[in-house]
Nucleic acid binder design. Structure first.
Length: 556
RNA sequence: UGGGGCGUCGUCUAAUGGUAGGACACCUGGUUUUGGUCCAGGCAGUAGGGGUUCGACUCCCUUCGCCCCAGCCA
């Protein structure tokens, strides 16, 4: 385990420290990450993953990956597989094999029988609507079901029949007998089992009754001997019920602890809303690089380390909070700055002809692969009479603080030579099509003996030796930091969140770009081969994140 | 408006009775063969009002604000 998988102190580590001091769990820490396999994981789940696995690592404990698959209507093994892949990719290893709540159905069923025998549960014939009507409201107590006082014998017979599939969906439920006047609505005779004649992704048609979350979850934790059952804030109201079930059964009883889920500005986190973006075709599926899904971030060029570091930096509390997405971007830049090999790529090319450079000469010059890491070494890049630079690195009439190329000005071509612009060639519409420059042969490598200074250093690509590729420039998916502002989030979609550039000119080494490597295009940003659409004969690079750009700020 | 939870720089987060600190963002300046990185500095906060105390982000009272709960979802 590397150091960055450890988490910083928070209110949960304090609870654990206290527990260890008192010997509550015998110095044992055992957490779990319990996703329902009904969709793809997103950055919010990543926070929970980093927390649960991070706690286990910090305290030399264990963390289970457990699928909470108690609702066959919504779940699918496709999601199981993607979740397994995502957790692995994030760099975490669970205890043994992935676990499934559905593997405990038989145990849960037997526990339910115990509760019935205790007189703490009953079979209820009320319809969906009748249950709702008798539940009461936030301010008014509910009323008891007319079936609440059935005999234990009758309850057992009925429950057996429910299990045997003798009733239709919705015809009966098993309910806990608690208190219909309770101020916490979760305690008003909550439903433990519902009848669902539906095929389950693992148990097939073995069951016609399925346990509800509150009944199932505590038992899952109990069976696995979890110590700290960490979940999000909205389950705080459910804790009394979690405790009630385990107390009645007198079984091993973990402690449920709630923390605030992650919110990020400029994006949405709800599975339902993300699904709408997919279904309505606003994005290219769940792994679109603009999606906050783990698979989307991966395709975008995010690294597991950056996501783990981000999770650590945002902390863990009980306050609702909206984290600035800039913090996520910062975590990526921080990681990539250290590791990303530098290459040169010209996105919006304008040709330069170096008039005093020999026509047929092609020379290879040394370029550093990473100034942050000498061990990354050097490579040779081609230099020739004709080269490309980016259009926005030239201005005919530069503003005061512009120190890139303009008429009559000398700049450095990174690693190559100083050049001076002498002539601007335009088409009939007045667009700049070509620049004529001269170079100083004495400045090879990009340095002059006489100590003369140049303000600007440009990236460039030889027009004699280069490859072309498509570039996808991604930006934030929404225009407003709060996508919900003004109603429908679809209306706040940023129509410029994806700009595609055709035929960008890249240095030739990128012809054999590694699809697992994220490159820094000097002065531009971090790019990765698109894992879905890039082909050998048509390379496509995604921009993970731009470099910080203080020139753009000055310009504003 | 029944119950449960939460209020600290613009944002996220420390400090649990003893100098309100860090990160991101923003702004200066320096270094730089990336207007990147790095370095130095700056800006900026305890929701309001009372009380206890030598001393309060922290304890008490009170007001205000925000979030969650009326699925046979999780």
């Amino acid at each position: 385990m590397t150091q960055d998988k450890l988490i910083q102190e928070n209110f949960i580590t304090k609870i654990i420290d206290d527990d260890n001091a008192s010997g509550k769990w015998g110095n044992r820490v055992h957490t779990r990450f319990p996703p329902e396999p009904n969709g793809y994981l997103h950055i919010g789940h990543a926070k929970s993953i980093c927390l649960n696995f991070g706690l286990a690592t910090k305290y030399q404990g264990k963390c289970n990956l457990r699928f909470d698959d108690t609702n066959p209507l919504k779940e699918d093994s496709e999601y199981v597989n993607s979740i397994i892949e995502d957790v692995k990719w994030l760099g975490f290893q669970w205890e043994k094999e992935p676990l499934f709540a559905s593997d405990y159905f038989e145990k849960m069923y037997n526990y339910a029988l115990i509760l019935i025998e205790q007189g703490n549960a009953f079979v209820c014939d009320l319809s969906f609507e009748e249950v709702r009507n008798l539940r009461g409201t936030l301010t008014k107590p509910g009323s008891e079901s007319p079936f609440r006082e059935r005999s234990i014998k009758e309850n057992i017979e009925l429950f057996l029949k429910m299990k045997a599939g003798e009733f239709a969906d919705g015809e009966k439920t098993l309910r806990a007998k608690i208190d219909m006047r309770h101020s916490n609505l979760n305690m008003r005779d909550p439903i433990m089992y519902r009848i669902l004649h539906s095929s389950h992704h693992r148990t097939g048609n073995n069951w016609s009754i399925y346990p509800m979350y509150d009944w199932a979850h505590g038992l899952e934790d109990s069976i696995e001997k979890i110590t700290h059952s960490v979940c999000t804030l909205e389950f705080e109201d459910h804790r009394p019920l979690y405790d009630w079930y385990l107390d009645r059964l007198s079984v091993y009883h973990p402690q449920q602890i709630e923390f605030a889920r992650l919110n990020l500005n400029f994006t949405i986190m709800s599975k339902r809303k993300l699904k709408r973006l997919v279904d309505e075709g606003h994005v290219d599926g769940w792994s679109d690089p603009r999606m906050p899904t783990v698979s989307g971030l991966r395709r975008r060029g995010y690294t597991p380390e950056s996501i783990r570091n981000f999770s650590d930096k945002i902390g863990v509390t009980k306050r609702d909070a909206i984290v600035d997405v800039a913090k996520l971007e910062n975590a990526l830049r921080e990681d990539l700055n250290k590791k990303a090999p530098r290459v040169m790529g010209v996105l919006d090319p304008i040709k330069i002809i170096i008039t005093n450079y020999p026509d047929d000469k092609l020379e290879y010059i040394d370029a550093k692969n990473n100034p942050e890491d000498e061990s990354a070494g050097k490579r040779k890049i081609a230099f020739s009479k004709e080269i490309f630079i980016d259009r926005n690195d030239f201005m005919e009439e530069p503003p005061k603080k512009f120190f890139r190329l303009s008429f009559g000005r000398e700049v450095r071509l990174k690693f190559a030579y100083y050049i001076t612009c002498n002539d601007v060639v335009k088409d009939s519409d007045g667009n700049v099509v070509e620049l004529h420059c001269t170079y100083d042969p004495e400045t090879k490598g990009g340095m002059s003996e006489d100590g003369r200074k140049v303000r600007g250093t440009l990236h460039w690509v030889s027009a004699s030796e280069f490859i072309e590729a498509d570039i996808r420039l991604y930006d934030r998916l929404f225009n407003d930091e709060n996508p919900e502002a003004g109603g429908d989030f679809v209306k706040n979609l940023n129509v410029e969140s994806l700009k595609t550039i055709k035929n960008a000119k890249l240095e030739i080494s990128l012809a054999s770009a590694d699809s697992n490597c994220i490159y820094q295009f000097e002065r531009t940003g971090y790019f990765v081969l698109d894992s879905k659409d890039s082909k050998k004969e048509n390379l496509i690079f995604n921009r993970a994140v731009s470099l910080r750009d203080s020139w753009a700020k000055i310009n504003r």
